[in-house]
């Protein structure tokens, strides 16, 4: 399949205006769910998906190709990798401070009060970054489709 048999993007003022109005609120809700997972329902997995849908909404309103050109591919990959690294760093950091793996209270000897609460918040943000990046990535990868290289069709069928 080539890219020119994709249905053309049709500009719709209603959808564009709605998305432009709703997107900041959805982004705020997503971040709220991520940050507030410690006190109420929510957390990194749920908040990450909601933050990711902001980009999906923009793509539906302003055209997938336009948003694809606007996004920085390295930033998406970096977002996913940084999420994993934050989680691992918090886990191994407590080992370095003579605690067990992911033992948040080990950070209290650095003078951080409520280290456990903050540690859990950071872990949730890391999870959120992974989920947001993967949701955005999956969306654009699927929308681009897969074009088998020459001579590969027989392997696939």
């Amino acid at each position: 399949m080539s890219s020119n048999d994709r249905p053309p993007y049709v500009e719709s003022t209603i959808i564009m205006t709605t998305v432009r109005f709703v997107a900041p609120f959805v982004l705020t809700l997503g971040l709220f769910i991520m940050f507030h997972g410690a006190e109420s329902a929510g957390g990194g997995f749920q908040g990450g998906v909601v933050v990711g849908t902001v980009i999906l909404m923009l793509a539906f309103a302003f055209g997938i190709e336009a948003v694809r050109a606007w996004l920085n591919p390295t930033a998406i990959l970096g977002l996913i990798a940084s999420g994993v690294l934050v989680f691992l760093a918090i886990g191994f950091g407590s080992v370095a401070l003579d605690g067990a793996f992911l033992e948040y209270h080990a950070y209290e000897q650095l003078g951080i009060h409520h280290a456990s609460g903050y540690g859990i918040e950071l872990v949730e943000l890391g999870i959120g970054a992974i989920v947001t990046g993967v949701i955005i990535g999956l969306f654009f990868v699927i929308s681009a489709g897969f074009d088998p290289a020459e001579g590969e069709e027989e392997d696939l069928l």
Binding site: G42, G44, I80, F87, L102, Y104, H114, S116, I120, I130
Partner: peptide
């Protein structure tokens, strides 16, 4: 023990933090 009010989050990120790291890596 975890200074988090939501018990679900406490279990997810503290008591079962290692499992959750596994989940995050699965998504990755």
């Amino acid at each position: 023990e975890t200074e988090v009010e939501n018990v679900v989050t406490a279990v997810l990120a503290a008591y079962r933090g290692f499992d959750t790291l596994g989940e995050a890596v699965v998504v990755f």
